[in-house]
């Protein structure tokens, strides 16, 4: 194999720096003893302590977690069914409905769901946010599960059927364990997408039902009002996602591979 030239290495390292420096700065400033995110003054934990007593932020975090968990469970079940159906049969409507929400800009789904919920006279809040999150997470789970099924050796299922297993038994004993890493990856993706989502929540959340991203948005939106607490909660969120990924890479290493 040909060696990669040194200038490619140099350019690539610069791009990696571009990817990581901004996040590193957020974390560093979360320990900075100054309300301005501008200059390093000294080390402190006070923003994290303030966070512990910030009821609004804590409530938003609780909402986010709740929405994320329900979204994760429901969209994993529905997405796995969709992925399986798309692998097994030649369908027309289902793939279109599964893939379009992923392909279009999020804002379009956000505004159409806003009109829909208002027309139904539904109070906007945690329920409407959760229903919307499920709708856009199904597709991501379905794609991961389907690609896992495509990589599976179909003859194993046939062998089980030849040995007398019914379709349900064959699915439970052979297919399900084989595609489990895909399902776990899909579930993790759904959970992360849900707790990360800003745009769709922005349109489908009513007054007083803030999620963490919405709360962060409203705090950084006010110009010139500096808020190192946001740095602290951001750092904690990064830690959470990082540990989730580490856990999955230990439990189901193949789930993280991108095929």
């Amino acid at each position: 194999m040909k060696k990669v030239s040194s200038w490619v290495w140099g350019a690539a390292s610069l791009v990696y720096a571009f990817l990581y420096l901004p996040l590193a700065i957020v974390v560093v400033f979360s320990f900075n003893d100054s309300a301005l995110n501008a200059e390093w003054v000294g080390f402190t934990f006070k923003w994290y302590q303030m966070l512990l007593h910030d009821d609004v932020m804590l409530e938003a975090a609780l909402h986010t977690l709740l929405i994320g968990l329900v979204t994760c469970v429901v969209s994993t079940v529905l997405g796995t069914l969709a992925g399986f159906a798309m692998y097994k049969w030649r369908l027309r409507l289902l793939p279109a409905l599964v893939l379009t929400p992923i392909a279009i800009p999020e804002i379009l789904m956000g505004v159409s769901l806003l009109i829909f919920f208002v027309m139904l006279n539904m109070t906007l809040g945690l329920v409407s946010i959760t229903l919307s999150h499920i709708a856009f997470c199904i597709g991501f789970v379905a794609i991961v599960v389907r690609s896992r099924l495509q990589g599976m050796d179909e003859s194993l299922v046939e062998a089980a059927r030849d040995l007398g297993a019914g379709p349900v038994t064959a699915f439970r004993a052979i297919t399900l364990p084989l595609i489990m890493p895909g399902i776990i990856a899909g579930a993790l993706m759904a959970f992360t997408l849900s707790i990360d989502d800003f745009v769709i929540s922005f349109f489908t959340a009513g007054v007083g039902s803030n999620t963490l991203p919405l709360e962060i948005y409203s705090r950084v939106k006010v110009p010139m009002k500096l808020n190192p607490e946001v740095n602290a909660i951001s750092s904690l969120l990064m830690l959470l996602t990082l540990s989730l990924i580490l856990i999955v890479s230990k439990v189901a290493p193949s789930a993280l591979r991108s095929e």
Partner: peptide
Amino acid sequence: LAKWLISGPPLLYLVLFFAIPSLIM
């Protein structure tokens, strides 16, 4: 029957919370 049982629930959900809202918009 199996086809409908498996593809039915996600299809129903996406018709309700994606297709119909898009048409209303």
